[in-house]
Design a protein around this nucleic acid. Structure first.
Lengths: 189, 189
DNA sequence: CCAATATACCTTCCATGGAAGCTACTGCGT
DNA sequence: ACGCAGTAGCTTCCATGGAAGGTATATTGG
């Protein structure tokens, strides 16, 4: 579905509800008055906003012939620093996909000449994926554009808003990962 | 076996970095000191948290034999209110997928006996997708569990934190949709 | 009424990723 | 040395969704 952000009418796909989530909540309150659907106000909006931002980011990746997956792999290699090498398993862990998916991402990048794959000298089971010079150049350019894009997307928030949002997101993630840290005691079995 | 003093040490796929995003930013500051990567603090965390929450939600969907897509379609039908009917195009718009994807979702739900498909009487081109009694029962049960799950996930935030987060997310989404609303004027042709 | 165009859904093909199993290699215990 | 368990990456199959085009029906101008 072409989002056509510039498109005039196109109301069918984008109900253009000032706030889609709010109207969904209203419908649930009518249909299931027995439930408290207030968490959707946060979780639903987070989900939608995340999707919206990802969509925008992918537009930039696409300009460099990259998908989100390929971009992430190149980023992990670039972040490693010279000589820009990592094992496939490391890359899979960093980008949160299975090793099977990583194999295929590396296949595509190798075919495009952006990375090379060779056997590890230290461990015959292992492989080493390395950024090629072409890969590093393309990625550095793409990443620069990517950061420009992220700045643009974030620029509609004030620095205070962005900072408050960052803190809340960090807190939430941390508390999900570590359910009960405050009450000291019980080191548990 | 890894001692991991404090580490919950789960799967190798989840590096369990206390804050993965922060360490990624540190790497970028070392490798690309020319760029300001601060937006990642917000966008990266939003992306990761969204993925984490979606994962948790899908676990509940799965307990009822539903994928995220099917759950969304059933939700849109259920929200419509009795007799729980909508056109495929409406469903596609509500759930933000293409009509092609919607056709396949409806195929699966129809095969599972959760919805029916019939021709529209008013418009021969149109179809009407309706929740079956079995579909409504299954979904109402699944949705109750889903909301319990969302309450659980949100419960690690205080009501004040949740409310602040909701406000920030709403603001961001709104400003992305409507780039320049404040300077009143130009009702434009 | 007929032709031309628009609409609504479906079909086909392709891209991507997960799950599970396979293969090659390492490293340890005997 | 030798064999076996563990590890790393790869392969296969399947599920899901997007893009583009096809088909049937509706609508409109003549």
């Amino acid at each position: 579905m072409a989002p056509t952000p510039t498109g005039p009418d196109h109301s069918p796909i984008t109900p253009a509800a000032a706030d889609h989530v709010a109207s969904i909540q209203a419908e649930w309150r009518r249909e299931r008055p027995d439930l408290d659907v207030s968490p959707q106000a946060v979780i639903g909006r987070l989900h939608r906003l995340s999707g919206r931002l990802t969509e925008e980011l992918c537009l930039v990746y696409g300009r460099y012939g990259l998908g989100e997956g390929e971009f992430d792999v190149l980023a992990a290699l670039r972040r490693a620093g010279a000589p820009f090498e990592r094992a496939p398993g490391e890359l899979a862990a960093h980008t949160m996909v299975t090793t099977g998916a990583m194999t295929k991402r590396i296949d595509r990048l190798e075919r495009a000449g952006l990375v090379t794959r060779r056997r590890s000298e230290a461990d015959g089971r292992g492989r080493v994926v390395a950024l090629t010079e072409a890969g590093r150049r393309l990625f550095d350019e793409a990443f620069t554009a990517h950061m420009r894009n992220e700045h643009r997307l974030l620029s509609v928030l004030t620095p205070e808003e962005a900072s408050a949002l960052e803190a809340l997101l960090t807190t939430w993630q941390r508390r999900l990962d570590h359910p009960e840290p405050p009450p000291a005691g019980h080191p548990h079995p």
